[in-house]
Design a binder for these strands. Structure first.
Length: 821
DNA sequence: CAATCCCGCCAGGTG
DNA sequence: CACCTGGCGGGATTG
């Protein structure tokens, strides 16, 4: 551990010298390796080398990607840094790669690809076991990792933040993080899904799509109506107030972490994931994501802020404002002013976003046409920056996860058991633990009570939502400011509030006097609105606020909800619930193959019904119907929705800033135009991570759907196309399948899955491969094959066909579709 | 040429 | 106070 200090001074590169060859070598391998073995658990996570082992891993796709990425990277690295020396070690390792890709590349291109976050993320993940043995200490030393990976520490932060958002990692101390792997993943996804539902992301997405669509045709009309809707939505849920969602077991210890900005990458990452989990088609256009995520928190706020600080340029904001001005104001204040400085910094970017959005609008308005544009094209155009990054990360993560998922069996059970284990570290609430344990059952039971763990969150107040439906309870941390803002998702919230809130908050906020409040107000307000037809039932949310700061801000919280159905339901039921959610009307943007996600969301992942397939829906499909937990078929469509079952209580941290968020869809203008998000924290990271996790298919990545077309219905076709072949499969799988590459053909997929899984998984119950598949996806923009015509149709479930598909693979790496074979 | 995103400065925060 | 974190802009790449 030369570590830290050195790091600071020394340049990474230099360190790089250090780089163990392994790493590099691993690169390609690594990726694979990552997947590998569960063995990992035993092994210390930290070790980089471990990774190396794993070559065989996975699905070819990953390999390809990795390799491609890696080799160059390595090369580049060497060249770059090392010019001097780099110590070339890498060479050996590289050799492989080199052979593959050819030195040439290196020579010519040290390119960024090599340096991409996605690749880095892969490498990072490769180092640790998917399901680490809790007994072992899985500490991650940032410095070490940075050295090993030969990157600047700064990069590691991005990765860690995303992983942290998924609770795959938790911060122990300064340079230290604990690796949790996928143990909590299911829960996390379930929780995020619930939260996303609460926030009505699905609805928001639809709204936005409609607007866009309509706008294309009829600008004005749509705007008026939809706007209202949106506004309402946003008002209710719209914004995700929550800053951060925590799982009971995995709380953030580091105060710092908690305290820091809410909007940070970690929060954005969660939200981004939520979009996928919530959206039926699993396709999420970047535009939409930007509008919702950025828009929520930032856009409005930003706008406002702008107004405040600079000048009121943005009319856009106003619309939102109108709806919730007061709230917004508060939010804005919070966001910007709250902590003072930082806020300002954001402004610029925000402003940019706004501008970009406006410009987009203009464009759109001007060129309403092309409804169907290929996603790719569109995406490329409009896509906000962040999505890409996020997508990449997600993709990567997903892949890895999927691969890893092989072990699924343990999944649920293990998880449960583990839940307790997870973190000894986490002091948190016992309650949480309990919840964890009871994933399924819990659903039924009102977890709500779950005591929030007193998290270190400085500002955030944890709110616990008892979700009857889901059974999960999670805590949401709201920041004071936010609290106000927060509105329960739907009317639901009110009910919930009482019980939990008090408990949760109290327990949690150590710092602040926990003022527990249920926030009737917010809830009520929000309540007024209904969740939309789309969502099945609003569950009740328990909302609580912990406003630590009773002082100023109040916290209100909205409860989350989840699916009510789920609450009662058992996992399977959950599936049903999913089905219920017919929601998505139009797929606007990209498909995100949630397959994994869905699985995740559903217990499937956790349940491990399919050991192998946990992550990938595909597996299920191919394999026997799901092991039980959830019959894929039934759920298929809904799959996306599932999440709840497992869901264990989560804690949501709400950041003040986020509070403001609401607006997202709100402003008509915004909606109409593509909101181009300003810069996001590293979107790439998120993407990768998500993908790895399986949430998002690599190929999918978020891309913004550029034009209106994307947003509009037409888009769907694309999606469909993607899914097309697989449709049958997909239908089965539901979205999950989507990932599967249609093109490749199931067989391949299967093969991959099998292959991939087989090795890894102890018991290959069902073939998995999903990941690969996902990766492989092609996104056919046009929906080459046949797009099932109506996207909607798909959604409904009957057709469902395609979720998985994506188009636009933004990144090559990700794409390596075929690879497998 | 536009979009994407890597690099790394530098400020806020934490120990 | 020194270091840890991570926001953010600049500029390099990519397509």
């Amino acid at each position: 551990m030369e570590n830290q200090k050195e790091n600071l001074f020394s340049e990474p590169h230099k360190r790089g010298l250090m780089k163990s060859p392994l790493q590099e070598s691993s690169k390609a391998n690594v990726v694979l390796a990552e997947i590998q073995p569960d063995l990992g658990p035993l092994t210390t996570p930290t070790k980089p080398k471990e990774v190396c082992q794993g070559e065989p891993w996975t699905p070819t796709a990953n390999l390809k990607m990795l390799i491609s990425a890696v080799s160059p990277e390595i090369r580049s690295r060497d060249q770059k840094r090392g010019l001097s020396d780099n110590r070339g070690l890498p060479e050996a390792r590289d050799c492989l790669h080199e052979h593959l890709s050819g030195d040439e590349f290196e020579k010519s291109q040290p390119s960024r690809k090599e340096k991409s976050l996605g690749l880095l993320c892969h490498k990072f993940l490769a180092r640790y076991p998917k399901y680490p043995n809790p007994a072992v200490n899985n500490d991650i030393c940032l410095d070490e990792v940075a050295e090993e990976l030969n990157v600047e520490r700064r990069r590691i932060y991005d990765i860690v933040n995303v992983l942290e958002s998924l609770h795959m990692v938790s911060r122990l101390a300064k340079n230290r993080y604990t690796w949790h792997g996928r143990h909590n993943l299911t829960k996390t996804l379930g929780t995020l899904k619930s939260v996303g539902e609460e926030n009505k992301y699905a609805e928001q997405i639809m709204m936005i799509k409609r607007k866009e669509y309509e706008q294309e045709f009829d600008f004005i009309k749509s705007c008026g109506i939809e706007d209202h809707v949106i506004k309402s939505n946003t008002g209710q849920n719209g914004h995700s107030d929550m800053c951060f969602v925590e799982l009971p077991g995995v709380e953030f210890r580091a105060a710092s972490v908690n305290s820091r900005k809410d909007k940070s990458l970690r929060v954005m990452s969660q939200k981004f994931v939520m979009l996928f989990l919530v959206s039926t088609p699993q396709i999420v256009s970047l535009e939409i994501a930007a509008k919702i995520l950025i828009g929520e928190d930032h856009v409005e706020d930003l706008d406002k802020s702008k107004f405040k600080s600079s000048s009121p340029d943005m009319p856009l904001a106003t619309s939102f404002l109108e709806v919730e001005q007061s709230a917004k104001e508060n939010c804005a204040k919070n966001l910007f002013s709250t902590r003072g400085k930082p806020n300002f910094t954001r402004h610029p970017s925000l402003i940019k976003l706004v501008k970009s959005i406006e410009s987009d609008r203009r464009k759109i308005s001007s060129a309403p046409s092309s409804p169907i544009k290929s996603n790719k094209a569109e995406s490329s155009q409009n896509s906000p920056p962040f999505p890409n990054k996020m997508a990449q990360l997600a993709a990567i993560c997903k892949m890895q996860l999927e691969e890893q998922s092989s072990e699924p069996r343990k999944k649920v059970k293990v998880k449960l058991a583990r839940s307790g284990h997870y973190k000894p570290l986490a002091p948190l609430d016992p309650a949480g633990n309990t919840e964890l344990e009871l994933p399924a059952p819990s659903l039924i039971q009102p977890l709500g009570v779950v005591p929030l763990i007193p998290s270190p969150l400085s500002s955030a107040v944890p709110v616990i939502l008892p979700q009857a439906p889901s059974g999960q309870s999670y805590a949401i941390y709201l920041q004071p400011a936010q609290a106000q803002m927060l509105t329960p998702p739907h009317g639901l919230s009110p009910t919930v509030c009482p019980t939990h809130s008090s408990n949760a908050t109290g327990s949690k906020d150590p710092t602040d006097a926990p003022t527990e409040r249920t926030t009737p107000d917010a809830a009520k307000s929000s309540a007024s609105c209904r969740p939309g037809s789309l969502q099945p039932a609003p569950e009740r949310h328990g909302a609580k606020n912990g406003s630590k700061e009773t002082t100023g801000e109040r916290g209100t919280k909205r409860a989350s909800t989840s699916e009510d159905s789920s609450s009662v339901k058992k996992p399977k039921e959950d599936l049903k619930a999913l089905e219920n959610v017919p929601t998505t009307l139009f797929p606007s943007g990209y498909l995100i193959p949630l397959t994994q996600c869905s699985s995740l969301g559903a217990e499937s992942v956790l349940s491990g019904t399919e050991n192998s397939g946990t992550l990938s829906p595909n597996h299920r499909i191919y394999g026997s119907p799901i092991a039980g937990v959830i019959p894929v078929a039934s759920s298929e469509l809904t799959a996306v929705n599932f999440p709840s079952f497992h869901v264990t209580p989560l804690k949501l941290m709400v950041s003040p800033t986020s509070v403001a968020a609401v607006p997202v869809g709100n402003s008509p203008a915004l909606n109409s135009s593509h909101p181009v998000p300003a810069q996001n924290p590293s979107s790439a990271i998120v993407n990768f991570t998500l993908q790895h996790l399986g949430l998002i298919s690599p190929s999918v990545q978020m891309s913004a759907s550029p034009g209106p077309g994307a947003g509009t219905v037409p888009v769907s076709p694309h999606v469909e196309a993607a899914s097309v072949i697989p449709d049958n499969l997909s239908s089965r799988q539901g979205r999950a399948t989507s990932h599967d590459s249609p093109v490749l053909g199931q067989s391949q997929l299967n093969g991959q899955s099998v292959a991939g899984t087989g090795p890894q998984q102890p018991v290959p119950v069902t073939p998995k491969g999903s990941q690969l598949v996902a990766e492989s996806f092609f996104r056919t923009p046009g929906g080459p094959t046949k797009p099932t015509s109506s996207p909607y149709m798909d959604f409904d479930g009957a057709n469902k066909t395609s979720f998985g598909t994506l188009f636009v693979p933004q990144r090559k790496l990700e794409v390596s579709t075929e690879d497998v074979h």
